[in-house]
Every structure is written in C-alpha cells, then in structure tokens.
Design a protein around this nucleic acid. Structure first.
Lengths: 144, 144
DNA sequence: CTGCCACTTCAAGTCCACTTGAGGTCAAGG
DNA sequence: CCTTGACCTCAAGTGGACTTGAAGTGGCAG
C-alpha cells in the first residue's frame, strides 16, 4: 500500500495536520519519511490514530496512551489498567445517571422555583455531600 | 443565624478559601462584610455553594452557573437548559457505557494481543467513526 | 527559471478553574 | 506595645491538549 502524506492522513483521520505533528512530537505516531517537506506516513498510522482516539475517549491521557505502545510499535496494554478504567467509567456512569435523573426531574418539576422542590433539594444535597462531585468537563469542540 | 467568616465557610463547604475568594471575584457568591480583613458571609452561602457544586457536576461552566443566579441572588434556571443538559448527559452515558463494555471485554479477552480480538477491533472502529469520540476528561483531584 | 502556496519549524497563546507566591495588614495574645 | 500568624490583594503560574502566528522552504505550474 502506498504511503500517505500528512494531508491525506489528516483527511482520512479527520484530525488537523497540526495535531498530527503534535502527536508525532509526543511520540504517539511516527512518520516514515518526507516528500519535500511533507511528512509521509505508513497507512498503519490510521489504525493507530483510531486506537489513540479510543484511548482518549476512555479517558487516558496522551502520555498514558504513549506508554501503551511498545517501542516496536505494537500495542501492549495492561489488562488491569483496562479493568481499572472500566470500573472508573462505571462509577462515572452511575454519577452521571443520578445527575441526569435529577436534572430531568428539575426540568419537568411543577414547583414554581427549583429550591421549593424536595427532589431538587435532595439532588443539591447529594452534590454537596460529594456523592456526585467531580466535574465531567464538557466535550471540547474542535475546529475543522 | 450568625454570619460565617471565610474560614468557617471553607471548613463547612470543604472548599479552600482561595477558591471562595475566586468565586466571589467571579460573582458566584457575595460576602456581606468584613471582620477585620476577613470576609463575612451569610450562612445562605453554603446552599449556594452546593448549588454551584451541582452545576459543576452537571458540566456547566462557572460562567454559565453565574448566569443562573438572578441579581437578587435567587435561582432562576431555564428548564430547557436543564433538559438539554440531561439529554447531553444521556448521550454521554450511552457513550461511556459502550466504552466500558468494550474495555471490560478487552480486559478479559483471551486473545493474546488486543488487536487480534474482533470485539476490540470493533470498538476501535467505533471510536474512529466518532460514535464514541469526545474525551470525558478524567476527574481532577484537588488538594486539601 | 520564477513565483506561488501549502507545507515546514519553533515559540507562544488559549481555555478553564483554580493555585501559588510575594508582599501587605489587622485582631488578638503575651 | 509588639509580635505573631492568618487573613488580605494582585499578579503570575499550572496542566492538558491543542491552536495559532511568524518566518522559512521546497515541489510544481507556468
């Protein structure tokens, strides 16, 4: 298969080329040469980028993801790490579910002001108690 | 009820006083005076801080939360905004559930390398397709 | 051969919610 | 009265993942 230049990889992966350069600098991907100034990549890089996307979606940092690749480029992920992350996702999901239920209720609640609704006050107390605490950070939008 | 100084509010709310000052600067809370240098707060501030915590947990930015308080200090939250956020949480929850299932499987998968497992490859493809894309940002821990 | 223009590098900027540091001030205890 | 120590202010720094800007360069159309 033919090598891809950075623009093609960008198009195929949906990532801006600045991000690809950034990933290369962070040793998440590697270019295999140049055509003029332009980086060339093995088509394998697309799979690798998907894997990186998966890791990001699962909440791993770029540094952690970098550590999941052996120097030879192979994937070598610690299964315990995966299980731990799955557990954490479970907790997050439970937290978010409680939150969603509370918000849904508050949105439909007939009480004239939210603070007059017992359910809403319970939700607020739950948040205060830390049961719901950590902020899930809104999905950052990227420019294309 | 007696007014609380910033140290008491900090102790009762669990927030560092630097954060309380920061919130005041951002007009999320208001102090009602001083005792010497020390800020004094109406005990109501505790409820308000809980509400702020809830907003944060639900993924609202501090600026958005600030807009939920009328100038008179009352809560006036747009119910459509709540419903919209609940919907977004729903999507996030579904996304995270798929991810958790995939990770759980990968953690238990008998395939010697992850990339040899069809389920894992499907998960990777799902991530690549953007179905799972946005990163949920790990829960940041705060120093006490 | 020349110019264009998209790529390149490197440094710096952005966003958000805080946190930290330097230097100042005030109430209270001795 | 004087020290102490915890608060105060204001400015700057942090972290993660990019994004943006300025200045340089090489392939290719004309």
């Amino acid at each position: 298969m033919k090598d891809l230049d950075i623009v093609e990889v960008s198009r195929l992966s949906g990532l801006p080329s600045a991000t690809l350069r950034f990933y290369e600098e962070k040793r998440l991907i590697a270019s295999i040469g140049r055509r003029g100034l332009r980086r060339l990549f093995d088509p394998d890089v697309l799979g690798r980028l998907s894997l990186i996307g998966l890791g990001r979606a699962a909440g791993f940092s770029l540094d952690e993801i970098a550590r999941m690749f052996a120097p030879d480029g192979r994937v070598r992920i610690d299964r315990r790490m995966l299980a731990a992350r799955a557990d954490e996702l479970d907790r997050t999901i439970r937290r978010l579910s409680a939150l969603r239920n509370g918000l849904r209720h508050a949105a439909d609640c007939p009480a004239p002001r939210h603070m007059e609704c017992p359910k809403f006050r319970r939700l607020v107390r739950a948040a205060a108690s830390g049961a719901i605490a950590p902020p899930p950070k809104r999905t950052p939008q990227r420019k294309t």
